[in-house]
Nucleic acid binder design. Structure first.
Lengths: 275, 275
DNA sequence: GGAGCGCTGTATCGTATGTTACGTATTTTG
DNA sequence: CAAAATACGTAACATACGATACAGCGCTCC
């Protein structure tokens, strides 16, 4: 059963020509407000012509544009009157595999943050924002993208941020650059990688400050780490989810940026002017 | 300070003549939808004449009726886009900068999936699971790690998955390998990168099936994309959040894996034995 | 390679909508 | 109580909006 226009659209979007699909996509992206504006505004927002918009609403089964707008307004009215339905059933029909996946991910995040005090996060952020040493980031097979993501942001607000990539031999050699004032951020979830464990151990012996992102079962690297972030990873899927760790990483990125605000802002402006 | 039109009205309703007051009351009662309808509808609903409605909006300080409607729409847009402000619960320990960040992220995910039907996701998963062609993934400055993350997983359950890395020239040359049966997954959020747009355009001209991960303002690449995933990115931070897109990516990875279950499982076993 | 079909944009048209002028009703004030 | 001012609605007007006809273009299928 189709209750909302959004569902109606996603139901038929597959059978639409390119232009009308663009209209559908921009409507979904700015749902439903763009549909309450005039045809001209809608069309320019979608990058198509007005007739395409009209053909689009005609394909949805509406006689004319005003009728379509009335439907949107009625829907909005219902939504505004009962805010409960907003947070309720995000994926409507339920049955499929989407909703449980999303629900599990949201739960993971809440759980992850529940076990993570603000104090901890602030400490880690302060460590990362410490400008006296260098920052290195590295990840495992599936988590290396998280290390890259964090490195890409941190490198903008402060100097001396390095992502360790490539073959094991390459980053092992970088150990020579690491000392007591440096920070090493490691991402490692099951199945834990021996190469990373060995790497962490040597770094630890050199006095490097290790920040570990891992799962709730804790990578063996936790023994060497000064800070451990244990994220929930279980989802109804063949794979583990790194989403919770991703959000923690983003939170830390934000916190570090805020701490370095003055210096960071200057750097950002400088970088902007370099482009 | 007056932030909403509703406040503005209740502020001046005392100084209004009877007819305009009726207009004000019916607008408050059906706020704000009646104000988005035509003057005629508004007037009959309020039991007054059209000019009274116009005088009413003029008294509120608007030059004309459309301007008044635009203001209402902007207000609505702000309300819809940040459900956080609606459900604001002071109970959440407040203070630190962690909680709002998490809350915003969770909202972003719910909103993102609310605009994403199972049908769409299933379509995209089917596209990605289609074994007849190759799969290419690429991302922008901050989103490339997402492309890597997805590529790392997809490459395990099926052959011919390539992440496009390095300098622009390098992946431009890979265009020669792309054809009608191939899929190109692009991650592009603000600020959109010209190089990616150009790349997408040429790929589109070659008939490549493009799947776009972008933010709610839609990268210009949306024009060339067969499938568009618009994720919410706004968080109380100096940076945009890619977390919602990350979760969508994980969901798709799971869905593709499920579709390729039989073949995929065989591949996974083979890969395990290779380690 | 050619013919047919479907999609899309340009230009034009009719109309519904917001706007304004004006006359009447109602209230207010001296 | 009278006179003026304010408020309100009717009706005519102009604009801008949605609708439509048509031509160009690309794509698919013989």
């Amino acid at each position: 059963m189709i209750s909302s226009i959004a569902e109606l659209i996603s139901d038929r979007i597959g059978a639409m020509p390119a232009g009308e699909r663009r209209a559908a996509q921009t409507l979904i992206a700015n749902y439903p407000l763009i549909g309450l504006k005039t045809v001209a505004e809608f069309s320019t927002a979608a990058g198509v012509s007005s007739p395409t918009i009209l053909r689009f609403v005609a394909r949805l089964g509406f006689q004319n544009y005003p009728e379509f707008q009335s439907a949107l307004q009625d829907e909005l009215a219902a939504q505004l009157q009962s805010p409960a339905t907003r947070t309720l059933n995000p994926a409507s029909s339920g049955g499929g595999a989407v909703s449980p996946m999303l629900e599990a991910t949201l739960d993971n995040m809440r759980e992850t943050f529940r076990h993570l005090s603000e104090r901890q996060l602030a400490d880690i952020a302060a460590t990362l924002a410490n400008r006296r040493g260098k920052t290195f980031l590295i990840g495992g097979r599936f988590t290396d993208p998280l290390a890259r993501y964090m490195a890409a942001h941190l490198a903008i607000v402060q100097p001396d941020v390095h992502h360790l990539a490539g073959q094991e031999g390459i980053w092992r050699d970088r150990l020579i650059d690491m000392g007591k004032r440096d920070v090493l951020v490691i991402f490692d979830i099951r199945r834990y990688q021996d190469s990373l464990v060995r790497f962490a151990e040597t770094a630890h012996q050199r006095g490097v400050h290790i920040v570990l992102f891992t799962d709730q079962w804790l990578s063996p690297i936790a023994r060497f780490a000064r800070h451990v972030i244990a994220g929930r990873t279980a989802v109804p899927s063949a794979w583990d989810s790194s989403a919770a760790l991703f959000v923690v990483a983003e939170t830390l990125i934000g916190a570090v940026t805020r701490q370095l605000e003055t210096d960071g802002a200057k750097r950002i402006r400088e970088l902007e002017s370099l482009r």
